[in-house]
Amino acid sequence: MTTAPSPLVPQPFPHQAPLLRVDGLTRHFTVSGTRIDVLHDCTFDVFRGEVVAIIGQSGSGKSTLLSLLGLLDKPSGGEYTFDGVATSRLGEGPRSRLRGEGIGFVFQQFHLLERRSALANVGVPLVLAGMPALRRRSRSRDLLEAVGLGHRLHSKPHQLSGGEQQRVALARALSRDPALILADEPTGALDAESSRMIMDQLLEQARIRDSAVVVVTHDPKVAERADRVVELVEGRTR
């Protein structure tokens, strides 16, 4: 489990500034005039090259926290600093650029384009980034080869197993060399062997690229492979 960083507790990367600093983060919503508090004073750091698992019961706020870390939502209070940037002060344009350039997402549902090949799916973020077509195809091919799918470049999602589709999704998440990979139940729809392979690939690619990984999971086998575990209990980090 984890708590707020303390000078009395050795940190995993003492000579680095944290890539993520979550300091007193809160989030509440108002529904039909009633305030619903989801997150309360969440505080933790994540460093480059580190894998952190977020665990907690359903309704504990894991998905809300992941949305905040992915800059898909804004906190109600506290501060989230990403790579030295205090994100609460950013307008929508800079937030969108930081999200697109610095964060890769892997979801339980693969969210692949059904009529496009694996190569084309991996290249989608690169199209949005304006990368020229030849360079984009080369980059996408290299990424698919890196996750063991060099023989599946032209296969469409319905021609791939669940584990293969998730590896395409992982390659897509890595396409812009993000500093942070956010994985939301990445093995939840997979069998045990496919789950192991996905975690192998996720951890290997993160280490190679010196990316931080934050993975939300209910699976204790996934959590035990992380460097640290952050537990959410009724919206509070432990």
Rank of each mutant, 00 (worst) to 15 (best):
F44E: 09
H15G: 10
R116S: 14
F105R: 02
L68N: 09
F44Y: 06
Y80H: 13
K62I: 12
Q109I: 06
T43C: 14
G56D: 11
R48M: 06
S58F: 08
L25A: 04
N121H: 11
G49T: 10
P75W: 01
T30H: 11
G78Y: 14
I54S: 09
T81D: 14
I55Q: 02
G100L: 10
H40V: 00
K74N: 12
S60P: 08
F13S: 12
R115N: 15
G104W: 12
S58Y: 05
G56M: 01
V106K: 00
A86E: 15
R89P: 08
L112F: 04
L71P: 08
Q57E: 13
I54R: 01
F29A: 11
I103N: 00
R27K: 14
G84W: 06
Q57R: 13
A120T: 15
Q108T: 08
H40L: 10
L66P: 00
I103A: 08
E114D: 15
R116Y: 13
F107T: 11
H40D: 14
G70T: 06
D41P: 03
T34F: 01
L19E: 11
S63M: 04
R21D: 11
S63T: 15
G100M: 10
L19Q: 04
Q108N: 12
L20T: 04
L72K: 03
R95S: 09
R21K: 09
L19T: 02
G56Y: 03
F47M: 01
L20R: 04
E92L: 10
L25T: 08
L90M: 13
V85K: 05
P12V: 13
L98G: 00
D73I: 01
F47P: 02
P94Q: 06
G78N: 12
L71H: 02
F44V: 09
D37S: 05
G61S: 11
H111T: 11
P75I: 04
R115D: 15
E79K: 12
H28A: 08
H40R: 14
Q109Y: 12
V52A: 02
G104Y: 09
L112S: 03
G49M: 08
F107C: 07
D83Q: 05
F82Y: 12
S67A: 15
S63N: 06
C42D: 00
I55C: 10
V22T: 03
P94I: 00
G59E: 13
R97V: 13
E50D: 11
S67E: 10
P14E: 12
D41F: 01
F82G: 01
T81S: 03
N121F: 03
H15E: 15
F82V: 07
Q109G: 07
L90D: 05
A53Y: 12
I55V: 15
L113Y: 01
P12F: 07
G61V: 04
A118C: 10
Q57V: 11
T87I: 08
G70S: 12
S58N: 10
L39M: 07
S117V: 11
V22R: 00
P18R: 00
E79T: 13
L65H: 00
